[in-house]
């Protein structure tokens, strides 16, 4: 690890002065399960690490009739244990699939969403994304993207919970230095104004829009600027939505799945009236499949209709030289996520 400074703010208001706007200069430490390993290999080499786990307002789960809000440093095992999240099986199934008590009790939801790409070229120090794209294209891309891979980014988005959250229509709250006027009166004495004069600001956006595919060096995998962090995730409640996550996992261990899909279905009178299907581990972002959703809407969930949705999901896949098999696995993931959401047997493991 490169030597770095360290800060552990206790309040959101302390954040603004701690971050540098320079890419890579500041790293946000949440669970550390991804970041610390990357820092050891100097794939990530910040000058300062800001531990956000001590900010009490970023921690915990709260629920009301509108939905559930989860603070970014809430641990995954706490989400698993929370009855508030029982209404969202897709989320719990995704967390359970991580298959490691340690990762679940150390890892945080914010960190899980913001973990860096799963790509052995990136993790072996080949950088992101331009050079990496060439390496992946010519090299061993068996675990790489089959969608959204025409640009330089050919890795897969690592998050295993994001597909479920995107399918469920979750939104994310982002905090960072803001310019412009405060929306609610002038700052009082002692207000969260950073030393450089930047006040703290926030934004809330659909999680689906949070993930982006970088086109050039120094573009990140999310909309976050170097001085911004995720503070909360909100999942809207809708009693009529059935959901599931299905991951194709080769083993019972914490290794990343080969493909995954989350399905959120509104089923009325036995017929799907609304659907969101999101694939994981197949693209540089959680991959929303409008085609799969269109295929299942208006249908009763049956093995045949689920299969048709799976086929629709992969019809426009663009596999690389060595990952054609992932098209089949993505198809099966969609099929099984839909069956599982509807409470039907998947027929496989």
């Amino acid at each position: 690890m490169k030597a770095f400074e360290y800060a552990a703010p206790r309040r959101e208001s302390e954040l603004a002065g701690l971050f540098s706007g320079r890419p890579g200069a500041t790293a946000v430490l949440a669970g550390g399960t991804d970041l610390v390993g990357l820092m050891k290999k100097m794939i990530v080499a910040p000058d300062r690490v800001v531990n956000i786990k001590e900010i009490a307002s970023l921690y915990g789960i709260s629920a009301d009739s509108a939905g559930v809000t989860v603070g970014a440093v809430t641990r995954l095992d706490e989400m698993l244990d929370s009855a508030d999240l029982d209404a969202f099986p897709a989320v719990k199934q995704a967390i359970r699939g991580i298959n490691s008590m340690q990762l679940q009790s150390q890892g945080t939801i914010g960190g899980e969403l913001c973990q860096r790409p799963r790509c052995w070229y990136f993790r072996n120090g080949c950088g992101l994304p331009t050079e990496l794209g060439r390496m992946v294209e010519r090299g061993d891309n068996r675990y790489h993207a089959i969608f959204g891979n025409r640009g330089p980014a050919k890795y897969v988005s690592a998050s295993r919970i994001a597909p479920a959250l995107v399918a469920l229509g979750a939104s994310v709250r982002i905090v960072g230095p803001a310019s412009g006027e405060a929306v609610e009166g002038p700052p009082k004495n002692g207000a969260p104004v950073a030393q450089d004069g930047n006040a703290l600001g926030e934004a809330i956006m659909p999680l689906a829009d949070f993930f982006v595919t970088p086109r050039a060096p120094h573009q990140g995998e999310t909309v976050l600027d170097p001085d911004q962090i995720v503070t909360h995730i909100h999942i809207p409640r809708d009693e009529q939505i059935a959901s599931a996550t299905y991951e194709v996992r080769q083993s019972e261990g914490p290794e990343y799945p080969l493909a995954a899909a989350a399905a959120a279905l509104r089923i009325e009178a036995g017929v799907v009236t609304e659907a969101r299907i999101v694939l994981g581990q197949v693209a540089p972002v959680p991959w929303v499949s409008e085609a799969a959703a269109a295929a299942i809407v208006g249908q009763a969930v049956t093995p045949e209709s689920a299969r048709a949705a799976g086929e629709a999901a992969v019809a426009r896949a663009t596999p690389l030289s060595q990952n054609r098999y992932k098209v089949q696995l993505a198809r099966v993931s969609v099929e099984r996520a839909i069956l599982q959401a509807a409470g039907l047997e998947t027929g496989g493991f």
Binding site: N99, Y121, R123, G139, S251, E252, G253
Partner: peptide
């Protein structure tokens, strides 16, 4: 390419 434990797949207790 897979010279780290996270990428070098091995069975776990459940396998």
């Amino acid at each position: 390419l897979n010279a780290e434990l996270a990428d070098y797949r091995l069975p776990r207790l459940g396998d």
